[in-house]
C-alpha cells in the first residue's frame, strides 16, 4: 500500500522543520557581518576568533576528556547490565535492578543533577571524597546516565542473536570465560561500539547534569555555550555550532560506513 499524499507532505515539511534552523546557523557562521540579518560577504573570521578564545578551547578540552572517560566507564558497566538483562536468569533483586537501571532514563535532568550533587556533597562530608567537584564527579554522573542506554543496546543485540555459536563452543570444551571472550564478546562488539558512541555524544551534549556536578575549574563546552547564549546571539557561537554539527556528521558517517561494510543495518527495526 502506498502512503497517502498528506503523510508524505507532512514528512517533507517535518524534515524541513528539523533541518532548516541548523542550516541557517551554518550559513550565518560564514557571514562577515556581526549582525546575523545582514549578509556582507563570505568570511571565516569568526572561526579565527573562536580558535583564539581560550575559554572555549579549555571548555572543549574538558568536555572531550569527560566524554571519553564517562563513555568508557558507562560502556563497561552497561555491557555487564545488558548481559544481566538478556542472559542471566532470575536472581534476588532483579526487579529492583531493572527499576534502578530505568531511573536515569525517566528522571528529568534537573533531578538527576541535583540528586547526584547531594550525594557528592554528603560523601565528601562523611568520607572526604570527592574533595570538591570537578572532572571526576561529572564523569561519574555521566557514566550513571549513559550506562542505562548502553545496557539496553547490548541487551537488544544479545536477544536478537542465536546462542548456537556459544553453545557449540561450550560443547567443544571451551570454559565459560573463554566462550565469553572468544565468542560472545566479538558478537556483541558492534552493540558495545554503538553504546560507547551514544554515551560519548550524551556526555558531550549534557548541560544540566554537568552544571550541578561540576566545580569552578571544570566548565564543559555546553556550560560555556549556555552562558554565552544567555547573553544573546554571537557569531562565535555560530562558528562553534557549525564545527559541532560537522564533527557529529563526520562521526556518524564513519560509524555508518563501518556498519555498512560489516553488512549491518543503520537503524534497528
Amino acid at each position: 500500500m502506498k502512503a497517502g499524499r498528506i503523510p508524505f507532505a507532512m514528512l517533507v515539511i517535518g524534515l524541513a522543520f528539523l533541518y532548516v534552523p541548523t542550516i541557517v546557523v551554518i550559513v550565518t557562521s560564514f557571514n562577515d557581518s556581526r549582525l546575523a540579518g545582514v549578509w556582507t560577504g563570505f568570511s571565516v573570521r569568526w572561526y579565527g576568533e573562536l580558535f583564539s578564545d581560550r575559554q572555549f578551547l579549555g571548555a572543549a578540552a574538558n568536555s572531550l576528556i569527560v566524554a571519553a572517560l564517562s563513555a568508557s566507564l558507562a560502556t563497561g558497566l552497561g555491557t555487564c547490565a545488558g548481559l544481566v538483562m538478556a542472559r542471566h536468569g532470575p536472581f534476588l533483586g532483579r526487579t529492583t535492578f531493572l527499576g534502578l537501571l530505568a531511573t536515569p532514563l525517566v528522571l528529568p535532568e534537573v533531578i538527576t543533577g541535583l540528586s547526584l550533587l547531594l550525594l557528592f556533597v554528603t560523601a565528601e562530608q562523611l568520607f572526604g571524597w570527592p574533595s570538591g567537584r570537578g572532572i571526576g564527579t561529572i564523569v561519574v554522573a555521566h557514566a550513571t546516565l549513559a550506562m542505562s542506554y548502553v545496557a539496553y543496546i547490548v541487551q537488544a543485540r544479545l536477544q536478537g542473536m542465536s546462542r548456537d555459536c556459544e553453545e557449540a563452543a561450550a560443547d567443544l570444551g571451551a570454559p565459560p570465560l573463554k566462550v565469553f571472550t572468544a565468542v560472545t564478546l566479538p558478537l556483541i562488539m558492534p552493540a558495545i561500539g554503538a553504546g560507547w558512541l551514544l554515551a560519548f555524544v550524551l556526555s558531550l551534549d549534557d548541560l544540566v547534569i554537568a552544571s550541578f556536578t561540576s566545580g569552578p575549574q571544570s566548565t564543559t563546552l555546553p556550560m560555556a555555550i549556555f552562558s554565552s547564549v544567555r547573553l544573546g546571539i554571537s557569531p562565535k557561537i555560530n562558528a562553534l555550532a557549525t564545527l559541532l554539527v560537522a564533527s557529529s556528521a563526520l562521526c556518524l558517517g564513519l560509524a555508518a560506513w563501518v556498519q555498512l561494510r560489516r553488512g549491518g543495518k543503520l537503524v534497528p527495526g
Partner: peptide, 23 residues
C-alpha cells in the same frame, strides 16, 4: 528516511535550541 529523521538527534541539543533563537 528514518536515518534522516534521527540524524538531528545526534547533534548538540543546545545548538539546536540556539538555532531557533536566531530564527
Amino acid at each position: 528516511l528514518l536515518f534522516l529523521v534521527l540524524l538531528p538527534f545526534w547533534t548538540s541539543f543546545l545548538i539546536r535550541v540556539y538555532a531557533w533563537i536566531g530564527l
